[in-house]
Design a protein around this nucleic acid. Structure first.
Length: 449
RNA sequence: GGAGGGGUUCCCGAGUGGCCAAAGGGAUCAGACUGUAAAUCUGACGCGAAAGCUUCGGUGGUUCGAAUCCACCCCCCUCCA
């Protein structure tokens, strides 16, 4: 699956693109927050194929959609003819980035982090091309150069270039230092130095001249720019992307059910697709620019068309399809579409037996049902266990409002103690499937064991 | 090591002996309205269908009764050494 999605988009590297054109496109997409070395960067990029990098720290066994913008950014640069390095933070992941984090974080054990590093490596690889000749991507791990370093060398060769006075002035750690009720350990405080060292090291060994990252990385990136100059006399650049915000002020990338992960085992392509489909009107055109490769002109045209038409905009559907394909490939997208169509078109009766099996495999939440165990059970219990609701109270609430259906038949509070009747033989699809709907959007497939 | 401040239900944050399963806000879930929107309105929101059961950093204690009082411990923050 590594790299599989890249070729699936039908857009190979477009080496004809000039970099000034790239920067103009990024600008038009609103993807540029700040640039370090703004005067010289355009002509530097136009001057040839450059190497750039972006770091991803292993803080879990999967990246989430917060990393999507930087990942796609690496690819945008690659398509413009530059060489992307995806750095996986095998070393920095052991320390923890304090940037704009309100609290000190729990350290993870080296084994755990090492395991995550491997997961991230393959995940990151799906977004960039390793096979094109001149500017093939690479994955690097900073544990390779930080892991073997001894303390004295670190303090003398690297630490000497940093002024604590300057470090504590950085906006990214200021709140931790100034605000009452928080603090920062020396360990996390050192993070900035490690990331700076990464940049200097990559500049020296791979001639990497640009680091990209989220806007929260500005302090760490500029630290690296200074260090590369001091240690190796190299001039390098930095570019940050804006923090993705939502118009309603809530945090992007989280839903009621939690984080949206890139790993299909954590967030199914169906759930992923649904997430994007639910994007607010006020955000959707901006997100199309951030998260897809559709030309800006096309996005603008879509916005105009949506505005002129009454009713439901098409933008959400476009966004959901594009991003799902980027992350989960065509197959993942098809799976998501199949489920969506089956559930929201209103006609479950059209589904075949194999369709049901497919839905389960495609990531529709499902579980097994033992007919023998139905006896003493209550629906509230059954549905809570299946994850349809957080507590029996919520199920009860839904039952009381006639918001529960089993295979299309409404179920009320009166049936709570009658699961056997609700899951009757003749009510099933193909003798074994029950599709339960709670509320407007939550579905669960039960299959008789 | 010393002095002071603090740890409340998902989050913020009231609550200083009974009227406290614990105000208020946010988040979340469900309903109406809709576009599988937004805004608005309604209900739920520790667990439990209910009876009832278990919470306010931890452990013990005082009391008829504790989130609230006492003792010790743990953790966080500020200042001093």
């Amino acid at each position: 699956m590594v790299g599989a999605h890249f070729s699936g988009t039908g857009q190979g590297p477009r080496d004809g693109i000039m970099s000034s054109e790239l920067l103009a496109d990024l600008q038009a997409r609103g993807l540029i927050f700040q640039i370090a070395g703004e005067d010289q960067l355009p002509q530097w990029l136009d001057g040839g194929s450059r190497t750039l990098y972006c770091g991803f720290d292993p803080t879990a066994d999967s990246l989430h959609i917060g990393s999507l913008v930087p990942l796609l950014m690496l690819r945008r640069f690659q398509e413009a003819g530059h060489k992307p390095l995806a750095l996986v933070g095998g070393a920095t992941g052991l320390i923890g980035d304090p940037s704009f984090k309100a609290q000190e974080r729990q350290l993870n054990t080296p084994d755990v982090v090492a395991g995550w590093v491997e997961k991230l490596k393959s995940q990151v690889s799906a977004f960039i091309d390793f096979d094109c000749n001149d500017n093939a991507a690479e994955v690097v791990n900073n544990l390779d150069w930080i892991g073997g370093m001894d303390v004295l060398a670190f303090l003398r060769d690297v630490g000497k270039h940093f002024s604590v006075n300057a470090m504590i002035q950085k906006e990214s750690v200021k709140q931790r230092i100034e605000r009452e009720g928080s603090g920062i350990s020396f360990t996390e405080f050192t993070y900035m130095i490690l990331q700076s060292y990464d940049f200097a090291e990559l500049a020296a060994r791979q001639d990497c001249s640009l680091q990209i990252g989220g806007s929260d990385q500005w302090g760490n990136i500029t630290g690296g720019i200074d260090l590369a100059r001091r240690m190796h006399g190299k001039q390098v650049f930095g570019l940050t992307m804006p923090l993705i915000t939502k118009s309603d002020g809530t945090k992007f990338g989280k839903t009621e059910s939690g984080t949206i992960w890139l790993d299909p085992r954590r967030t199914s392509p169906y759930a992923f697709y649904q997430f994007w489909l639910g994007t607010a009107d006020a955000d959707v055109y901006r997100f199309l620019k951030y998260f897809t490769f559709l030309p800006v002109t096309e996005i603008d045209a879509l916005e105009k068309a949506d505005a002129e038409r009454q009713g439901r905009p098409e933008a959400q559907g476009v966004l959901a399809r594009e991003v799902t394909r980027l992350v989960h490939g065509d197959e993942g997208l098809q799976a998501a579409l199949r489920i969506t169509e089956a559930l929201f078109s209103g006609s479950h009766d059209a589904l075949s037996e194999s369709d049901f099996e497919q839905l389960r495999q495609d990531g529709l939440p499902s579980s097994e049902l033992q007919r023998s165990a139905l006896g003493g059970q209550l629906l509230t219990q059954l549905f809570t266990d299946a994850g349809l609701a957080a507590s029996g109270k919520q199920v009860k609430d839904a039952l009381g409002r006639d918001a529960v259906w089993i295979n299309g038949a409404a179920v009320g509070m009166a049936q709570n103690a009658e699961p056997g009747q609700c899951f009757a033989e003749d009510a099933s699809y193909f003798g074994r499937f029950y599709l339960v709907r709670l509320g407007k959007k939550k579905y669960h497939l039960f299959e008789l064991a």
